[in-house]
Amino acid sequence: MDTLDPSLPLMPGFRLARGVARAMRSFDFVTVEEFVPEAGLRVDVMALGPKGELWVIECKSGRADYLTDRKWQGYLGYCDRFFWAVDADFPVELLPDETGLIIADAYDAEILRMGPELALPPARRKAMTLKFARHAALRLQALRDPGSVLPGAAL
C-alpha cells in the first residue's frame, strides 16, 4: 500500500471519493461529495460534465459496505450514469453488471466499465443542475467565510 498524505482522512470511502474527483477532472467533470438529491438520499460523489450530464458515483470500501447499501437504486432517477468506485482489492463480481465500475485510490481512478446511459428527463436535469450549483456555491462560501452560512443550510 502506498504512503498516504497524513492530511487525508483515514476513512477509505473519503479516500476513494478524492481519487474519483481527481479523475473526473481529467474528463472535464466537476464534482460535489456527499450530495443530497432529495431527503433521505446522499450520494458519495455527484459529477457534472461539460455537456450537463450528471453522474452518480458510489464509493464502497469493502464487501460489508456494499452489502449493507440498500439505497443505491434510488439514485438512478437522479443521474445519466451510475458507477461504483472501489479499490483494487474489492470483489467486483458482487457489483451488478448493468452499472458502471471505477477502480480508485486516494490519488486517481480509472473507469473500467461505463455505466449505461439513463438519460434524465429535462425537468429533473434542470432541477439537479441547479441544486448542484447551489450546493457547490454554499460549500465554497462556508469554506471562505464559515460564519456566513446559516445553520441548517443544505451543505
Rank of each mutant, 00 (worst) to 15 (best):
D97L: 12
V32W: 03
L8I: 08
V45M: 03
I103K: 03
G77F: 05
W55C: 07
F14L: 14
L150D: 09
R81M: 01
I102G: 02
K71A: 11
E58Q: 11
L76A: 07
T129K: 13
D5W: 08
K51H: 15
S26V: 11
I103P: 02
V86D: 07
W55L: 13
T31L: 01
D89I: 00
M46T: 10
R63N: 14
F83T: 03
T31Q: 01
V45D: 00
A136W: 13
R134M: 12
A154V: 10
A17F: 06
L48K: 10
R63F: 09
I102F: 03
M24S: 06
Y107G: 14
F132H: 05
E93Y: 08
A123W: 12
E98V: 09
R70C: 11
V32A: 12
E38Y: 04
R18P: 13
L54V: 09
Y107S: 14
P12N: 03
L140R: 13
V36K: 10
G77I: 00
A153W: 07
G152T: 00
L120F: 07
L130S: 14
A39N: 13
T129L: 10
K126Q: 15
G100N: 01
L48I: 03
R15A: 06
L143Y: 12
P37Q: 01
L10T: 15
L140I: 12
E110I: 11
S61L: 07
R125E: 13
F29H: 12
Q141K: 14
S61D: 09
D44A: 02
D28T: 11
L95E: 00
L120K: 07
T99Y: 01
Y78V: 04
F29K: 02
F83N: 06
A109T: 06
M128F: 08
V86N: 05
P12D: 03
C79T: 05
R70V: 15
D105I: 01
R134V: 13
G49M: 02
F90I: 00
A133P: 09
D97G: 10
L101R: 06
G115A: 05
M128V: 11
E93V: 06
I111N: 09
R144Q: 12
V32Q: 09
E38T: 11
E98K: 13
L95C: 00
D69M: 09
P146V: 00
C59I: 03
R18S: 15
L101A: 04
F132I: 01
M114P: 11
R42H: 06
P50D: 10
D28F: 12
L76F: 12
L16I: 10
A88N: 08
F29Y: 15
A23L: 08
S61C: 07
T129F: 06
A123T: 14
M46C: 13
L67F: 08
L101F: 03
R63D: 15
